[in-house]
């Protein structure tokens, strides 16, 4: 290997290593393996439609259910998430987080819900539909 590249590798190994707690988090992710949930995939372009200034929009789609989220930044690491279930129906929405207890919120008869939470990684469970994990 090129000497310059080898020295650069050594420098980054010292200056910017993977934080140990992130190795632990990656290992711990395995515990979230679910066998029988129906996955609502994140539609890749949904976050890109709005410009840089608008609220962030995330769309998830499973065969039986769509979930639309709008994420507003209310502080440096604080978020307000407004959601819409499609088809619109009342339901219990469970918000799972790898590093914190789950949250429960009720969607009203129009399928709307809202919650405040810290920035981080979440997924939503509605019935047996689980969204992809996403950073809010």
């Amino acid at each position: 290997m090129d000497d310059t590249e080898a020295r650069l590798r050594a420098l980054f190994a010292h200056a910017d290593p993977v934080p140990p707690r992130l190795d632990e988090a990656a290992r711990a992710a395995f515990a979230w393996r679910t066998v029988d949930a129906e996955l609502a995939e994140l539609l890749e372009d949904a976050a890109l439609v709005r410009g840089r200034d608008g609220p962030r929009q995330l769309s998830f789609e499973a065969p039986s259910l769509g979930i639309e989220l709008e994420v507003v930044e209310t502080g440096p690491r604080a978020r307000r998430v407004t959601g819409q279930l499609l088809p619109a129906e009342p339901a219990s929405v469970r918000v799972e987080r790898p590093d914190a207890p789950p949250l429960e919120v009720a969607a009203d008869e129009l399928g709307r819900f809202e919650l405040e939470l810290p920035a981080g990684v979440v997924r939503l469970l509605v019935g047996r539909v689980a969204t992809a994990w996403v950073t809010v």
């Binding site: 993977v18 992130l22 990656a26 992710a29 979230w32 996955l39 790898p98 990684v121 994990w133 950073t135």
Partner: peptide
């Protein structure tokens, strides 16, 4: 957050 999300996506 990006790293954690990537591994959780792989799990699913």
């Amino acid at each position: 957050d990006v790293v954690q999300t990537s591994w959780l996506r792989l799990v699913e």
